[in-house]
Design a protein around this nucleic acid. Structure first.
Lengths: 294, 294
DNA sequence: AGAACAAGGTCCATATTATGGACTGTCGGG
DNA sequence: CCCGACAGTCCATAATATGGACCTTGTTCT
């Protein structure tokens, strides 16, 4: 069982690269993920073609397959492609196991009630962060910089930054490098160096702080929490108008976030009863590799 | 634009059947749906092979592709395959458009509060019904016959029956026929004829009633609601112990369900601003057919 | 008008990709 | 120690997915 890294010499060199044996499926699922990045409006065929690197006929054929399965739908008016009802239903089904949101709802509600500001649950998805939920507070001035389903590169925004800062340095480097182009092009004020500085500050402080860098006057404060095996599970964060983010109140909010993060980690504890001492940094669940060759 | 049924003579006969041009993607997505049927435990490879009709290597290869995309995960201990985190995230993203659950939450909460019993939102998925949410009531004796994510053939259970009864007769026939084997094998008390009788009763009454046929003493009452174009969108239902389902209370609950169903239909109204008078019975959103041949 | 463009959608010969029969490795029970 | 059941893998073959070229529809510019 511990022969995990035994690489035999005769492994066919052609397989070395990512030759999966299911090219079209990989491509189709890539499209799905791409469409998921624009959950509100959907994407026109042209952009999907451009964004995926595939050509038009192939893209369209794969989209048809996704539509047959109900995972994607095409808006009849605009001809844009967007996530379908089946994707929604699958999500509800998957929520039984991956019920992060379910688990976090209590925390989010409590944070929103106690602080009167808006609270968020954010998770990581590759090099991006996704806002899974936004729980409105009661305070009359609210920032709408972040909606449920919104996605930004890791490091952009409080929850996103908290997650990034919680990752090991190697991952941070890869992620920031991967996002560099997007950051420079679409996130002025989030140059790679700025993000690195933010990470240092976040690690010192224990919580992340976004001083209105994405939308002026819209501040955020966040804190990551982990699975029992050490992997980062997500982040809780709170957004408020700048006047409600004085240093004193920051500490107050940090304490609340910490309390809820601890609660989340306690809730997640039962998930890993497995005693297998795998290296805790495994970036992804990763398929089991039983056989010899790779 | 209205040349939709012009079938040219030269269409290659081989295409007549469901030759999609993306067999493997179709198969992979079929597996995804299959795995979704067992959201709690996941499925072992053998059952997926059997359930899909594919052979082992193909099944495994496709599963690997789904795992690479994060839509499926393999439980390390049991080696069972289950829905992955990405499926959950996609669902949250899709919820922006297909926010039935979101829309229904108010109704479900109100029903649960007013009746003290447990309320449910159910939607159709092909020939099955899926319970999307279960909102607990406060009454101390609660039935747990139906959990969120549970799936039963259309006609089995209150919400499921309400949906089936709301469909046109042609669909009903197809669905009951398709489910016949499953019904006879796994749902004693829900023979096809019994379901047909239930449908008649439901249509007369306006609401469906399940008099403890799935789990003794666990009764349910349900009502379907529609999209503005006439398609059935889903059903609201209430479950309670038999003693809380006297005829008098049934009428009471029916009134509440009707009120909430009307509300849901009002909420759904803005979805179809399109004036295109397509035939309202189109079973599925269906890909657009622009070109000439089919 | 009409021409010119852009974007969505489709065809079909080709070569790459997916397929599945046969095989190996692993666990648990007797 | 052997057996059966189950998970996972190999590889020649056949079927499938690919993408360049093309067609159609709607929009913008003269």
């Amino acid at each position: 069982m511990d022969c995990r890294e035994e690489r035999l010499p005769h492994q066919s060199a052609a397989l070395g690269a990512g030759l999966s044996g299911s090219q079209s499926v990989d491509r189709a699922l890539g499209l799905l993920s791409l469409i998921g990045r624009e959950p509100a409006e959907g994407l026109p065929l042209g952009e999907i073609v451009a964004g995926s690197g595939l050509n038009k006929p192939t893209t369209r054929r794969l989209l048809m397959a996704l539509m047959r399965a109900g995972l994607v739908e095409q808006e009849p008016q605009t001809r844009r492609y967007c996530l379908g009802e089946e994707a929604f239903v699958l999500g509800v089904l998957a929520a039984r196991r991956h019920g992060l949101l379910e688990m976090a709802m209590d925390s989010l509600r409590r944070l929103a009630r106690e602080t009167q500001d808006t609270s968020f649950l954010t998770v990581r998805r590759e090099t991006y962060a996704i806002c899974l939920h936004r729980e409105e507070g009661t305070y009359p001035v609210r920032t709408h910089a972040l909606q449920g389903g919104d996605q930004h590169p890791l490091g952009v925004g409080a929850g996103s930054l908290a997650i990034l800062a919680a990752l090991p340095d190697g991952d941070v480097d890869r992620i920031v490098a991967a996002n560099e182009a997007a950051l420079l092009a679409r996130y002025p004020g989030f140059a790679p160096e700025a993000i690195r500085a933010d990470i240092v500050a976040t690690r010192e402080r224990g919580v992340s702080l976004n001083p209105g860098r994405l939308v002026a006057s819209s501040w955020g404060i966040g804190r990551a929490f982990r699975y029992p095996d050490g992997r980062v599970a997500g982040a809780l964060s709170i957004a408020a108008i700048d006047s409600r983010m004085t240093p004193a109140r920051q500490s107050e909010l940090a304490a609340l976030l910490t309390r809820e993060a601890v609660r989340m980690e306690a809730l997640l504890a039962p998930m890993f009863l497995s005693k297998r001492g795998e290296k805790p940094m495994a970036a992804k669940p990763q398929p089991i590799e039983t056989g010899r060759a790779r």
